[in-house]
Design a protein around this nucleic acid. Structure first.
Lengths: 208, 208
DNA sequence: TCCATGCGATACCGTTCGGTATCGTCAGAG
DNA sequence: CTCTGACGATACCGAACGGTATCGCATGGA
């Protein structure tokens, strides 16, 4: 397979750094962090170990960079959902749940990258862990705000309930204990929002 | 402790196999599976690598055996809860939730061993994975039965909701995104049971 | 044209790990 | 007492890994 080297007119090649991150993303997600060697990432990125270490000081730094990208993607999805239903926090919450529910089949073999990475990196000082915890805290803050916007009487409790259910749906999908987890998840979140709706003030302007 | 008298110079020593399993349990839980070497287990068990390989063919077999023990402990706790409230499935469900909630502080640093091991063993053919999936399936079956006993109109859905919430509480505790997760968990499960129960007592929505 | 620079390839280093081989010892069964 | 089998200790092996050093080449700017 190495015989195609030297051809400059290959498929429009991304710069090595992008290829490395793409390859790392794919391998880390499917195989796990510690099971993927730098050598394997280099091969999948059609480059070499040396090139990787030219762009990332250590493997841990590369892992943290990958986590940052995953977190950014997630935040972008959150933003997209918010913009899709402006001023309608209830629909925003349901959109977020739908985003997770639709992603369940894709992670059925391997689970959520955040949950998995947390398990694979018990060292709290690992750079990737700070990214994860920061992201999770940020996400919780946003969800609490969303529940408050929706007029739920106890936004923290509602956000906790939604968070538990979203996370639980992912791990239960991973271990295969619950079938049709996506449908069930949607029904559950719907129930959570509906249950608090009686206290909802219909005349509530959107927060700018 | 009196059976092995004669040389009380040391702490009453269990047979090597027990010591190995105890040490493995402690290390796997606190450090993770792949980060713990067989050598480290041997040292903590006050024995040697060779002794470990005399009792377990490979490290993977030892991991699976540990998983089996954890699953058995969990099942025992389930049984204890059931016997504590005979004929009262609602209290049994709450007892199960309390068992999880009370265990949250203990796993705040490292998470649930099942979830973590699932992340650390992406290979579906790993012997420990079969133990996990079997255990989770068994647990789900029991929970569905419990919900059915409690007369909930949709036991599968109720069990899924409870499972999601229990699992989610554990991962959220691990990543520190939700505070007072134990209290919140109890309130949520209480709400789930009450809600399904009122749907049983009367066909109209009861929560106001 | 020349040179700096990024890149691919390869060889290498030190460490760790799973797993094995060997040997001396000690306790208990006959 | 002797035999047997489990145990502890140690040394070792081969593989894999993270990370480094070095060299040759292609490219692009001056």
């Amino acid at each position: 397979m190495a015989s195609t080297a030297g051809r400059p007119s290959r498929v429009a090649k991304l710069p090595p750094r992008e290829r490395i991150l793409d390859a790392a993303e794919e391998l880390f997600q499917s195989e796990g962090i510690r099971r993927v060697s730098v050598q394997a990432i280099a091969e999948k990125a059609a480059t070499t170990k040396m090139a990787i270490y030219r762009h990332f000081e250590t493997k841990d730094v590369l892992v943290a960079e990958w986590m940052r990208i995953v977190a950014a993607d997630y935040q972008a999805a959150f933003d997209r959902v918010r913009m899709e239903y402006p001023g309608r926090p209830r629909e925003q919450i349901m959109g977020l749940a739908r985003f997770i529910a639709e992603g369940l089949p894709a992670i059925s073999h391997r689970g959520c990258p955040f949950i998995n990475s947390l398990a694979e990196l018990p060292d709290r000082s690992h750079p990737a862990r700070q990214v994860i915890e920061e992201h999770k805290a940020h996400q919780t803050r946003r969800l609490v705000g969303l529940c408050a916007e929706a007029g739920l009487p106890d936004p923290e409790q509602a956000a906790a309930e939604i968070t538990f259910v979203l996370e639980g749906a992912q791990v239960s999908t991973q271990n295969g204990s619950i079938d049709r987890a996506g449908d069930r998840l949607m029904r559950i979140v719907e129930g959570i929002v509906d249950r608090h709706r009686s206290a909802l003030d219909a005349s509530r302007p959107a927060v700018g």
